[in-house]
Amino acid sequence: MRCIFQREWSVAMRNPGQWVNPLLFFIVVVTLFPLGVGPSPQTLSTIAPGVLWVSALLAVLLSLGALFDADYSDGTLEQLALSGQSLPVIVLAKVLVHWLLSGMPLLLMSPVLGLLLNLPSQAIPVLMVSLLLGTLSLSLIGAIGAALTVGLNQAGVLLSLLVLPLSVPVLIFGSSAVAAAAGDFAASGQLLALLALLILALSLAPLMASLALRNGVSGGT
């Protein structure tokens, strides 16, 4: 498990483009909204939670494509499936690295973008906590989608069609937590819901993803 973590980490470090692009995408998408909706601070602050969360969801989705496809094409995926180690643990390690490189940067960028959208400052901590829990669940759910579409040629579109409906609960509780905090309401209920979704995803997603991976690997000749 630790060595897979190291391997993924060093591979990701070797080609930074793979995880920097979704971060830039996140920043660009968030800056688009004021241009589209109009700069008035009042409207911006009401839509800020939703905008931040939807862009985070899309950014995570963008970076999911490469989770298994690179390993599939150079043959390492089938070696992982054939190794003595349990595949769900390996999948968990890969997802953690993917999250550290996609979810965490979003998390660190979010305060700046929150101010950009005139999000009330007391909502920033809740925004960060909700993104912390939410993006990990999104990476886990997304891993199932990525595993199901491994090896398919234009898998990007199919991946989002499969993952988006499954990530709606995370989006709902995430954005409403931030909205509640923005309006000085207690956001603990929504955050606990996010935590519950995360625990469910942590327990089920690696299992389902490895089942899908074994099937995906068998497809390729």
């Binding site: 199932i144 199901l148 499954l166 089920l204 389902m208 089942l211």
Partner: peptide, 10 residues
């Protein structure tokens, strides 16, 4: 098999 996994997850 892939569709079956998706149905169960769904």
């Amino acid at each position: 098999r892939a569709a079956a996994v998706l149905a169960v997850v769904g």
